[in-house]
C-alpha cells in the first residue's frame, strides 16, 4: 500500500484518477462492512476488530476523503435510524452507502 495522490509530494500533486478513486472506494466499503459486522458506526471505535481493513483504507484514500466518508457514515446512520424507527426494521448499511457513492 502506500502511494498517495495528494499532499505528500511537494511537486505538482496530481489529482486522483479513476483507478485511484475506485481503489479508495473499494477499501472504504470493505472497512465499513467490517465496522458493520462489529456493530460500530463511528470509525475508530472498533478497537482492533478491523485493523487490516483500516490500514488498506488509509493507504488508498486521502485523509480529507477518509474524514468525509467517515462523517457521511455517521450521518447516514442517523438518517437510517430516523427512518428505521417508524417501521422498526433496520435496512443494511450498504444499501444506504450505495445511494451516496454509487
Amino acid at each position: 500500500m502506500g502511494w498517495f495522490w495528494s499532499s505528500t509530494s511537494k511537486e505538482d500533486p496530481t489529482a486522483p484518477n479513476r483507478e485511484n478513486r475506485q481503489r479508495c472506494w473499494e477499501t472504504r466499503d470493505t472497512y465499513f462492512a467490517c465496522l458493520d459486522r462489529a456493530g460500530v458506526v463511528k470509525a475508530g471505535e472498533e478497537g482492533k476488530a478491523c485493523e487490516k481493513e483500516h490500514k488498506a483504507y488509509e493507504g488508498n484514500c486521502a485523509k480529507s476523503w477518509i474524514e468525509y466518508f467517515n462523517q457521511r457514515r455517521i450521518i447516514a446512520d442517523a438518517q437510517k435510524e430516523r427512518l428505521g424507527l417508524r417501521n422498526n426494521s433496520r435496512t443494511p448499511k450498504s444499501d444506504l452507502q450505495g445511494s451516496f457513492f454509487g
Partner: peptide
Amino acid sequence: FTNCPDICP
C-alpha cells in the same frame, strides 16, 4: 474540483 471524493466524478 479534481480532489472531489465522489460527487464530481
